[in-house]
């Protein structure tokens, strides 16, 4: 089975820290940052680069559309 690896890019300044992507992530690899962005919100980030499968669940539930998803087949 070809392995799929993914990654996300979060537009940090537009993220409002609602954490809906954290609950939507099936592999639980999204966390909220400790530091805050320019508006004072903690923002989402990928905490485990190897865990993301690029399923884009986080991106389609993001109310502000700040997540961009990339996916690549490995092997």
């Amino acid at each position: 089975m070809a392995k799929v690896k993914g990654t996300i890019v979060v537009d940090i300044e537009k993220c409002k820290g609602c954490e809906i992507c954290v609950t939507a992530c099936p592999t639980s690899v999204i966390s909220m940052s400790v530091e805050v962005n320019g508006k004072g919100y903690p923002y989402a980030y990928l905490n485990d680069p190897d865990g993301c499968t690029g399923c884009s669940n986080c991106a389609i539930v993001c109310p502000d559309g700040v997540i961009t998803v990339y996916r690549q087949k490995i092997g």
Binding site: G6, I12, S33, Y45, L46, P49, G54, V66, V69, Y70
Partner: peptide, 19 residues
């Protein structure tokens, strides 16, 4: 920097972006 897997960020790997 919180962006990981920098080498994957290429247009051909894009699966979802804001419309």
């Amino acid at each position: 920097e919180k962006v990981v897997n920098q080498e994957m960020i290429k247009p051909e790997n894009l699966v979802y972006q804001k419309t």
